[in-house]
Each structure stands twice: as C-alpha cells, then as structure tokens.
C-alpha cells in the first residue's frame, strides 16, 4: 500500500508519519505530482496559516494536482480547511473541493478551541466502529460551517463540521494522529477504504 503525505509549508508531517507507522504503514512524504497521482491513498495534514499555505500550493501548481486526484484523499485540520471554498483567515480563496465556508470562532469562549471534544451524527465509513459522542483532539481557531457534505458534527458554542466528504475527498478538523485509540481506528478505516 502506497500512502503519500503531501509535503508543503504547513505540514505537521512527523506526527502523521508516526501514527501511520503504528499501523504498520511507511508513508512517502512528497510534493512530486506524479507520486501523488499514483499513490493508493493521499494524506494532506496541516498546521499553520491558510493564505501562506495556499500561496505555496499555487506557486507550485500543487493546487491543481490536489483538486484532480481520484484515490481516497484525507485532509487534516488546516488541510481540511484548505479543501473548502473560502477561509476568513486572511480572506483566502481555497481549493474549493467542499462547497463550504471557513469562519473565525467568535470570542464568546476561549479561542483556539483546544482540547478533547465530542464528534456525533456520523455519516461515513471512516467512522465505522466508533461510538457516537467519542472524544477526539482539536486545535483550531477557524471552523467549517455545517453543510450537506458534513460527515461528523462537533459543538463549540454551536454545531459545526468536524468532518466533510465529497466523492473521494475526506477531511477532519480534529487530529486523528493525536486522538489516541479512536484516532488510530479512524486512520485505519481510511487506509482500508
């Protein structure tokens, strides 16, 4: 099984790589379009800022590559937000895979939303075997709105999309690579798609 992790300027690659290692997978970390196109699975991690990440992807025409892949593709955290249409973070046009807007959390509660929170209302094979209301680990200041592409919901001040899916494209706002046994199961479900 060839699993590629997209190499760019906002990847928290090491943690994702180790999480895959724990599942017996040795991923390839690459920005080579040909390797990305032919991999069995592609993971798009991300910790950082939206506009500089999109600028980096566009300069290398990786945005075109990522939008046109056909194998199962998983965005994590900023990776998922970059797969949306637009982010309020520095008013950034993103990849537009999901028809969803990304907005800044209002300051009524502490921001970033950091720590363990619940996921619910599952609608995806990636959540197979996961109990409703399981806790996973989040760190983010921006959130994706609910839409008909939502596959998991979470609540912080209000309900928002903690997971999205369209065709072969999946995204999670939380960090499966840091979410203990639950996160490992979700990654395993993705690998087994």
């Amino acid at each position: 099984m060839d699993v590629a992790i997209v190499k760019y300027n906002a990847g928290n690659v090491q943690s994702v790589e180790f999480a895959l290692n724990r599942l017996g997978i040795t991923p390839i970390i690459t920005d080579n379009p040909q390797v990305l196109r032919t991999a069995d699975k592609v993971i798009f991690p991300g910790v950082g800022e939206a506009s500089s990440a999109m600028k980096y992807l566009r300069e290398r025409e990786l945005d075109i590559v990522l939008k046109n892949l056909t194998q199962p593709f998983l965005g994590i955290c900023l990776g998922m937000q970059l797969m949306c249409k637009h982010s309020e973070e520095n008013d950034t046009d993103c990849l537009g895979i999901f028809d969803v807007k990304v907005k800044l959390f209002p300051p009524e509660e502490k921001v970033p939303h950091m720590g363990w929170n619940k996921i619910f209302n599952y609608n995806s094979p990636l959540l197979k075997g996961i109990d409703e209301n399981e806790y996973v680990y989040f760190v983010h200041s921006y959130y994706a709105e609910l839409s008909n592409e939502t596959i998991t919901t979470s609540n912080y001040m209000f309900n928002y999309s903690s997971g999205l899916n369209k065709n072969n494209y999946y995204g999670f706002q939380f960090h499966p690579e840091k979410s203990g046994e639950t996160g490992a199961k979700i990654l395993k479900n993705f690998i087994e798609l």
Binding site: S15, F18, A19, R22, Y137, H175, K178, S179
Partner: peptide, 11 residues
C-alpha cells in the same frame, strides 16, 4: 522527543 512522538498517540 522523537522517541516520545513515535510511541505516544496523544498531544
């Protein structure tokens, strides 16, 4: 730190 990251699945 690298050893910890390799073996620990929480932040």
């Amino acid at each position: 730190v690298k050893d910890i990251a390799r073996n620990v699945n929480i932040p």
